[in-house]
């Protein structure tokens, strides 16, 4: 049990430091940094004290705190994935418009030069 706690705690800290480093190098937009930072802050105490959620999970009828964490994690990751798909769709629409603008501008430039 102690070994497991060490493992989860180290993983949590590793993830937090990766996020910090990405933000520091300006590779990660602030909004995502905040999101993942919050996740880290919630997850690390749970990693160190897995029993923390036991009272809450018992209150809502989940057998153990660990299952509750797993369930919440899956839901959370799903929502994040959906958000990212949405974000990519929007970006594609934006780059599409830019590509069109570029093509139109170059065509017009050529027409002007040709005259």
């Amino acid at each position: 049990m102690v070994k497991l706690t060490i493992l989860t705690a180290i993983s949590g800290l590793a993830v937090l430091s990766i996020i910090f480093e990405l933000v520091r190098r300006r590779q990660l937009r602030e909004k995502y940094a905040i999101l993942w930072g919050l996740v880290g802050i919630v997850v690390i105490p749970l990693a160190i004290f897995p029993g923390l959620l036991n009272p809450l999970s018992r209150a809502i009828g989940v057998a153990s705190g660990v299952s509750l964490v797993l369930f919440l994690a899956v839901v959370f990751l799903l929502v994040v994935c959906i958000h990212l798909s949405w974000e990519v769709s929007r970006l594609e629409e934006e780059t599409r418009t830019l590509a069109e603008d570029l093509a139109l501008l170059r065509t017009e430039m050529r027409e002007r030069v040709g005259q």
Binding site: R96, A99, E100, L102, A103, L104, R106, T107, E111
Partner: peptide, 25 residues
């Protein structure tokens, strides 16, 4: 022909919106 060249492949729909924009403008 007049040529409008997209920087990367968008598919027929992408090409046609460009065409309609050109026609509109």
């Amino acid at each position: 022909a007049t040529v409008a060249r997209l920087p990367y492949n968008l598919g027929v729909g992408g090409a046609m919106r460009l065409g309609y924009r050109y026609g509109y403008e």
